[in-house]
């Protein structure tokens, strides 16, 4: 199962890299979003995908799953949510102001 998940994360990174290398604002942004999903999967796998109990309810608990990766992933999701939201607004503003969503065309725009 872990191997499968790692492969999945790898595929996501692959797709994201492809998107990041394109010249379109939106594609780059979607690329970063997919990239963050890949790393969330990686975090989860690194904690181990054991089929354990709920962590630490009571003193003599059965074998439980590591709770830390969940906390890490949740935090990472919130942060990537905020960053993606910001960069979307930024890209939109840039599109309105510069009249293009092509990164290539932005080269050398009025450099002072």
């Amino acid at each position: 199962m872990e191997t499968l998940m790692i492969l999945l994360a790898g595929i996501l990174v692959m797709a994201a890299t492809y998107l990041l290398l394109s010249k379109n604002f939106i594609r780059v942004i979607i690329g970063t979003a997919i990239l963050s999903h890949a790393v969330h999967l990686l975090l989860m796998v690194m904690g181990g995908l054991k089929a354990g109990n709920v962590p630490l309810l009571g003193e003599n608990a059965a074998p439980y799953t590591d709770a830390l990766p969940q906390a890490l992933i949740l935090t990472a999701i919130v942060i990537s949510f905020a960053v993606t939201a910001f960069i979307l607004v930024l890209a939109y503003r840039a599109y309105k102001e510069l009249g293009t969503d092509d990164l290539e065309k932005l080269r050398g725009v009025d450099d002072e």
Partner: peptide, 29 residues
């Protein structure tokens, strides 16, 4: 205009480095 262009690059490169940071954290963990 120039600000928007540079900040897009700045944000994109920093997202990428933050991503690598998380990858490194995941491996270390």
């Amino acid at each position: 205009r120039v600000q928007l262009r540079e900040s897009f690059k700045y944000v994109a490169i920093n997202i990428l480095s933050s991503w690598l940071f998380l990858v490194a954290i995941a491996y270390l963990y």
